[in-house]
Design a protein around this nucleic acid. Sequence first.
DNA 1: GCTCGACTTCGAGTAACCCGAAGGAACTAG
DNA 2: CTAGTTCCTTCGGGTTACTCGAAGTCGAGC
Lengths: 141, 141
Amino acid sequence: MLTVKEAATQLNMSEHTIRYYTDQGLVPSVQRDKNNHRIFDQSALNWLQGCHNLRLTGMSIENVKHYVDLCLQGKKTIPERYQLIEVQYQHAQQQLKDAQNRIRFLERKKQLYEAELNSDSADVLNPDTWPNIKVCPNKTK
Amino acid sequence: MLTVKEAATQLNMSEHTIRYYTDQGLVPSVQRDKNNHRIFDQSALNWLQGCHNLRLTGMSIENVKHYVDLCLQGKKTIPERYQLIEVQYQHAQQQLKDAQNRIRFLERKKQLYEAELNSDSADVLNPDTWPNIKVCPNKTK
DNA sequence: GCTCGACTTCGAGTAACCCGAAGGAACTAG
DNA sequence: CTAGTTCCTTCGGGTTACTCGAAGTCGAGC
């Protein structure tokens, strides 16, 4: 049985977020002790973790809540739940690709900077370090 | 030379976001035509894309702006820029790992649901479809 | 001249936290 | 027994990065 703080440490979430999720009804199995403090068993931790994962794939709090509610309604909602998971799975795949693209982008930048840093001829301008720099006003006054 | 809408299509960003970025000074090379409409050349597109990438690795608008300002100050800021890029590179690596973890999570869920959907014995409860469901109040009244 | 569509600015709205104040139990030391 | 510390509680306002919509301008086509 863990406190908010312990759960936050274990799941790598902020205490604020955990309270927020429980208040939103995303964690059906959370209990309170005699001091009205939230206490988390393994089931509650699993819900938290699951909801967090769904959030991180771009599902809104509202839709996560809907999914949780479906779970509570029993096996008859499995087809709909499967659909929802499938959609988020596609999102997650896209996120993976996006992350890979960003890594490539940053790797290229790093390499350009490394080349600049190691070059003795500090005056040779590498025009590709960043595209043509042409300053101009952004706002019309 | 592209309009806001065309740039949005090409870079897969919303028009709103593009205007927001230009207004925040993240795109030094953006120009205006005689009707005061923003027009984007290749350089402006590159800045937009680059800023977007930095944002998506978790850099705040404020810090992206700082980075852009450093770029405009010339080669002497390259060491600091390199540091900033390196930090975001680490973030991007972490994001990749997180995305992979989420995919594994969703794959497991999908498999469990698929098993449920294909099982003839619809009454056999698979307790692992979602952890112990125990409904209880979340708020003390 | 009129409508259409794409652009402009600007101010307000939104989601999902995030923070901090104010207060209540429970433990620990003196 | 009191004081201090540490954890928790609720609650309301703040923040970031968009996101939206209203109201207006401009040039092209009919």
